Amino acid sequence: MAIKSSTTLVTEALDQIKTISTDEAFEKSSKNECNLIDIRDIRELDKEGRVENSNHIPRGMLEFWLDPDSVYFKDGKLDMNKEMVLFCAGGLRSALAAKTLQEMGFEKVSHIDGGFAALKQSKFKIV
Rank of each mutant, 00 (worst) to 15 (best):
L62R: 03
D67L: 08
R59E: 04
E27M: 07
S5W: 00
N53S: 14
S29I: 03
S54I: 10
R59H: 09
N53G: 01
F87E: 02
A118P: 09
G115V: 04
K4I: 00
G114K: 08
K74G: 05
V85R: 00
K18H: 08
F73K: 00
C88D: 13
S122T: 10
E12Y: 06
T22W: 04
I37N: 06
N81Q: 11
I3P: 00
K99C: 03
K108P: 01
F87V: 01
E24W: 00
V85H: 00
S110A: 15
K31S: 13
E48M: 12
I37G: 07
I3L: 14
A97C: 09
V71R: 10
T7G: 02
K120W: 01
T100D: 14
V10M: 10
R40V: 06
G76M: 07
E48P: 00
M80S: 09
A25L: 06
I20W: 08
E103Y: 01
A97T: 08
T8F: 11
G49E: 08
A117N: 13
Q16V: 06
L45I: 14
I39E: 03
G76K: 06
D79P: 11
T7Q: 11
I20Y: 11
N35P: 06
S21Q: 07
E24S: 13
D46V: 09
S54A: 15
S30I: 03
V109P: 06
K82E: 01
C34I: 14
K125C: 00
R93D: 07
A13H: 08
F124I: 12
L101H: 06
I112H: 12
V10E: 11
I3Y: 11
L62P: 03
A95S: 15
N53H: 14
K31D: 13
D69N: 15
S70G: 04
A117H: 07
R43S: 15
L101Y: 04
T11Y: 09
R50C: 09
A118C: 06
A95R: 10
V51L: 12
D15Q: 15
Q16H: 10
N32G: 03
E44Y: 02
L78W: 04
A97N: 11
G114F: 08
E24F: 02
A25F: 07
I37K: 08
N55I: 15
D75P: 00
K108Q: 14
I112E: 07
M104S: 02
I42D: 15
G105H: 03
K4E: 14
K82P: 04
C34K: 01
G60I: 06
F116T: 00
S5G: 15
E24Y: 02
G49P: 12
D15E: 15
K28W: 09
L14C: 09
A118I: 03
D46H: 10
V51G: 11
T11W: 04
C88G: 03
L78A: 08
K18A: 07
M80D: 06
N32A: 13
G115M: 03
L66Q: 05
F64E: 09
T22K: 01
E103F: 01
F87W: 02
F116H: 05
G60L: 08
S30N: 14
E107N: 11
E44T: 01
F26C: 04
F116A: 06
V127F: 10
